[in-house]
Design a protein around this nucleic acid. Structure first.
Lengths: 145, 145
DNA sequence: TGACATCGTCAGCTTCTCTGACTAATTTAG
DNA sequence: CTAAATTAGTCAGAGAAGCTGACGATGTCA
């Protein structure tokens, strides 16, 4: 199967997984060892002003029940806080809390570090081509673009 | 967080997820509705001559116990078969069985279809640039390249 | 006002994934 | 050539992740 030409899907997945692993490893090393991959995938979609549970669930493509359970864990660990949504009494906004704010710069630093490594390996030109093509691809693969 | 520039990681992930969704949906529609995403991710790494459980586990980055449980399900559903490994009496090779062979062309067709859509959207030049950059990236992100 | 949709939670269940411990076979060291 | 260390796989137990279905509360719209 994987013998001849690897599908573009696999080629996309490999660097994505490598980056995610690096970020999770760095967080663990920095003492944020109670974040699981699934929690991190949800967490990274929280906007600066907070985001509704339903919105998080949609973007992460999980049910709102699953998202709720993940937010429960994140909240108990101090990474996020649920606050009332002023615009809708049914809803609540998931906001990044103290511990989450502490973890953010670490994650951002690793992402920057890995992207810098990729830039060195690919060269400026090919890195720009890669990002350009990925941006274009997003238009037809991201329901939220 | 996701406000300004999306990380290359997210940009890689979005099309990957879109492709995976399409493949799973097509399999389900074709009657292969008993394959889960985790099982499919393992299945796709089985080589033409069969692959050892440990090798599958490493490539999918799960423990061999997890891989074993996934293969159990795949085997019960008829997608794979475990056969003795002639070169090592401890080991067994996971081989694609009848039902798995039937599913393969369907998956391959969807992958081809999606890649064709991407080609249309990106154009020949940018698609080639994308694959070129991803191939290069594989060298530093795939432990099995 | 009433019908319908949306936001979130509770409950119950399956699948995924891990750690730890173990057997059997292979490889390596002395 | 035996003894120790390594490797392949399984069993057992546990927690996390994910789903469907049902529900109360709020919001929207005719």
């Amino acid at each position: 199967m994987a013998a001849d030409e690897p599908s573009t899907g696999l080629l996309l997945f490999l660097p994505y997984r490598a980056l995610e692993n690096r970020v999770l490893a760095a967080l663990t090393a920095a003492g944020f060892d109670d974040v699981t991959p699934a929690q991190a995938r949800l967490f990274q979609r929280i906007g600066p002003e907070g985001t509704r549970l339903t919105a998080l669930a949609e973007q992460a493509q999980v049910t709102k029940q699953t998202a709720g359970a993940l937010v429960d864990h994140l909240e108990r660990a101090g990474y996020v806080r649920r606050v009332p949504d002023p615009s809708d009494a049914r809803a609540r906004l998931v906001r990044i809390a103290e511990r989450g704010l502490e973890a953010l710069p670490i994650a951002a630093a690793v992402v920057a570090e890995v992207e810098a490594e990729w830039l060195v390996h690919l060269g400026k030109r090919r890195m720009a081509q890669l990002r350009g093509a990925l941006h274009a691809l997003r238009e037809i693969t991201d329901p939220y673009a």
